[in-house]
């Protein structure tokens, strides 16, 4: 995975598979602490201790279409390669939380990438899930909630060109302002 956005797009799918109704994505860039944090929390079915211990094993997956599961191991690898850490915690019936820390100035830290497209595509693909995106830096904070978007759209498709452009531009500009 080349960017954090790719990781986000990927990890969200785990939450979707776990039948989560709420997914919270938090991205924090802090130059003062030289730290970049990505945290994804869901209220899905969660994992028991045994499954949790195997979650970052690349040769473990809950699918049966293939025998490898690389989403979490790749994120862990990227975090550890950029002088960071990776924590995953889960409670059956409660949900799962994944946190990856990166050293912000590390040369191996993946760029954020086009997170506006990631968020937009995730909104489009998961109509029944409440998605929250929180982006913070030492300069400020930007929050986006899928419920708010849907309330304003009143059933009009997200796929409409004007709406697509408005949403992606809105996210892009809001992030730029606090960069």
């Amino acid at each position: 995975m080349k960017t954090l956005s790719d990781h986000i797009l990927d990890i969200i799918q785990n939450s979707v598979k776990a039948e989560a109704t709420l997914i919270e994505i938090m991205v924090d860039f802090n130059k003062n602490k030289d730290l970049c944090t990505l945290k994804i929390t869901d209220n899905g079915c969660g994992m028991n201790k045994e499954t949790l211990s195997k979650a970052t094993d690349p040769f473990f997956t809950s699918r049966n279409t293939r025998k490898v599961g690389l989403g979490l191991p790749l994120l862990k690898q990227n975090a550890e390669m950029s002088n960071g850490s990776f924590i995953i915690s889960s409670e059956p019936g409660e949900g799962t939380s994944v946190e990856a820390d990166f050293q912000l100035s590390n040369i191996d830290r993946p760029e954020l990438g086009d997170v506006w497209n990631t968020i937009y595509l995730s909104l489009l693909g998961n109509e029944n899930i409440e998605l929250k995106y929180i982006h913070s830096t030492e300069k400020g904070r930007f929050e986006l909630s899928s419920n708010e978007i849907r309330e304003n759209l009143e059933g009009v498709s997200l796929q409409q060109k004007e709406i697509r452009e408005a949403i992606t531009d809105y996210i892009k500009n809001s992030i730029k302002e606090i960069q």
């Binding site: 986006l144 978007i149 009009v156 408005a166 949403i167 531009d169 809105y170 500009n173």
Partner: peptide
């Protein structure tokens, strides 16, 4: 295309 500054502007575009 008009840009939006907040999500309530999305309503107009809708």
């Amino acid at each position: 295309m008009s840009k939006i500054k907040s999500l309530s502007d999305l309503k107009k575009i809708k």
